[in-house]
Amino acid sequence: MDHGDHGGHGGHEMPSMPTRRCSMNMLWNTQIEDTCIVFRSWHISSTTAFVFSCLIVVALGVLYEWLRRAQSNLDVKIAASLSAQGKGKGRSGEHTGTTVPLTARLTRAFLYGLTVFLSFFLMLVFMTYNAYLILAVVVGAAIGHFVFNPQMDVEGILAGSSASGKGMACH
């Protein structure tokens, strides 16, 4: 028995849903729907989802700045500990390189790895060329810098010995 014709019931097929695809723009754009952020699974299908995604990107920018501050604070803490132990100075009192204890090195490496990962991730968000997402990265970095960098080494900057630190760079 052949049911391939289904007795003339061929017109009862379900209408196919339009396929949503990630839009790949290599030019400046302000597209909202069908924008994918880094992963195909982070597919924006509504304005609400896009706004929420922008807020996540802002939070990632703030997190990046927090990680940079955490690295700096950890280095200060390690340096103070080594200095208190009398390590890090030569016979004539000049500063020398000191081997950092293993647990501190592992913590420093972990924070550094997270910072590098997040900086590259934000670079990929930036490379969507979406004006709103680019703005979200910049706003997150600015908020994070404002919150986590309230101090400045004025004497070091005036003496030319202290840079203000690299900005949000890929590496």
Results as ranks from 00 to 15, higher is better:
110 F>Y: 10
54 C>E: 01
61 G>N: 05
116 V>L: 11
108 R>C: 01
77 K>Q: 13
96 T>E: 15
103 T>Y: 06
122 L>V: 11
85 Q>A: 15
58 V>Q: 02
71 Q>T: 12
100 V>F: 07
68 R>N: 15
77 K>C: 02
120 F>R: 04
81 S>E: 14
79 A>N: 09
74 L>A: 09
95 H>C: 03
114 L>C: 14
65 E>K: 15
54 C>F: 00
88 G>D: 06
52 F>P: 00
93 G>I: 03
109 A>E: 07
81 S>M: 11
75 D>N: 10
65 E>P: 03
105 R>Q: 15
59 A>F: 04
53 S>E: 04
82 L>D: 02
71 Q>N: 13
78 I>E: 05
73 N>Y: 08
61 G>L: 04
81 S>G: 07
108 R>M: 12
95 H>D: 12
113 G>N: 03
105 R>E: 12
109 A>L: 10
60 L>M: 13
112 Y>F: 11
99 T>W: 09
113 G>K: 00
68 R>Y: 11
64 Y>G: 07
108 R>F: 06
100 V>Q: 13
98 T>Q: 15
90 G>R: 07
81 S>C: 03
112 Y>R: 10
115 T>Y: 00
120 F>L: 15
81 S>W: 08
55 L>A: 09
92 S>C: 04
72 S>W: 13
73 N>G: 01
77 K>A: 14
104 A>Y: 12
73 N>C: 02
97 G>W: 14
100 V>C: 11
87 K>Q: 14
